[in-house]
Design a protein around this nucleic acid. Structure first.
Length: 355
DNA sequence: TCTGGGGTCCTCGTGCGG
DNA sequence: TCTGCCGCACGAGGACCC
């Protein structure tokens, strides 16, 4: 049975939710962004995008590009609620669904009767019942589906075979493809590779020389729109973290310790809420010159105890002793208890006791 | 222009035990 | 006892995504 995958992507999702709650903003350029001097744009309405405003752009710059923009603080609780409604509709149409973030999902349409008609009905249903507009891409794998859904946003509906995708995007930059970011695109450009067609035509061995034995051939297969990734309906988080960027860089040790304490408390709250405890406690420190270091320590017993987490985190921070003002501080927990339980067991099926 | 927060995955180096 | 090899766990950094 031939595989058929759809990628469904809600258009300017957070901004659309905000416009629905505040209809008086319709037609105006709206930017969803945190406040503070170092905030960045979470998302922007299509009216704001016309001014060149885009996600991840510093809000200060966005406001210079579009001084009349209406700034709205993000409300993730509201976005989660709408997202849940949408995903319930999606699951009512398709059995195998992989939800990615709040605003997109892969749907396995393989073996489905009239899959395209079903997807058109789903898009209509989502619009009528939630007010959200969606773009859909359909193809033989997740890669084609994803690129297709991006191709004609908003309200796009693009169906492509792998060969059609190769032709349609032959002259596009390699960074069109998910997994090829700015750094890799830059490195490819230095090799004279500026289009997907050129990348697809470059021998795997040549790419392997520059990108390694795994990434090299992988890049070439991406350019050929080959992918065999499975749809994974249940994704289990492997880490949880909290981090904060200071409005003004911090040099004072007491202030850093206090921030670390707040982050540890916040993280442990979240871990307790998710009934998770872990063994690897890590800190992340970004200095004023943008160098970022991480330090980690694995403890014997899984924990979500704020005293343990804070002690270890503070120990790591003291050992690192930042030599420059600190811009960002973060705490992360990984190696969750259920993972540790997957560790090899001695014959007989009993867990090894620690004594 | 001056870069958030919360994640995942990959690679590479190192230390350790069999 | 020493050495080499291998696999594994861990730690660090980087790229990438939404």
């Amino acid at each position: 049975m031939a595989r058929l995958i759809a990628h469904l992507d809600l258009d300017a999702f957070y901004a659309t939710v905000e416009l629905q709650r505040r209809p008086e903003l319709r037609g105006l350029p709206v930017i969803v962004s945190g406040s503070g001097p170092r905030a960045v744009v979470t998302t922007a309405s299509y009216e704001a995008r016309r001014f060149g405003v885009g996600s991840a752009m510093p809000t200060s710059r966005a406001l210079r590009l579009c001084p009349d923009a209406v700034l709205v603080p993000p409300d993730f609780e509201a976005y989660r609620a709408v997202s849940q409604k949408v995903m319930t509709l999606v699951r009512g149409t398709v059995d195998v669904v992989e939800v990615l973030g709040l605003d997109e999902a892969y749907l396995d349409l393989s073996g489905m009767h009239s899959p395209k008609a079903a997807m058109r009905r789903l898009v209509t249903q989502i619009r009528e019942q939630t007010g959200m507009s969606a773009s859909v891409g359909i193809g033989p794998n997740t890669l084609v589906a994803k690129v297709a859904s991006d191709a004609e946003k908003p309200r796009g509906f693009v169906v492509l075979t792998r060969e059609e995708a190769c032709l349609r995007f032959a002259h596009a930059s390699p960074s069109l493809v998910p997994g090829i970011g700015a750094k890799t695109a830059e490195k490819l450009e230095r090799l004279g590779i500026t289009t997907l067609q050129q990348l697809a035509a470059t021998p795997g061995e040549v790419l392997a020389q520059h990108f390694g034995g795994r990434q090299g051939p992988w890049l070439r297969s991406r350019a050929r729109f080959e992918a065999s990734d499975q749809i994974t309906p249940v994704r289990v988080a492997v880490s949880e973290s909290r981090e904060t960027t200071f409005d003004i860089d911090v040099t004072d040790g007491e202030e850093l310790a206090a921030a670390l304490r707040r982050l540890s408390e916040n993280l442990c709250d979240g871990l307790a809420r998710h009934r998770r405890s872990g063994r690897t406690i890590a800190i992340k420190v970004r200095l004023d010159d943008w160098t970022t270091v991480t330090r980690a320590r694995t403890v014997e017993q899984p924990t979500n105890d704020v005293e343990v987490v804070y002690d270890v985190a503070r120990g790591l921070l003291c050992e690192y002793a930042p030599s420059r003002p600190v811009r960002l501080l973060g705490v992360r927990m990984a190696t969750f208890a259920d993972e540790a339980e997957d560790a090899p067991r001695p014959p007989g099926g009993q867990l090894a006791l620690p004594w």
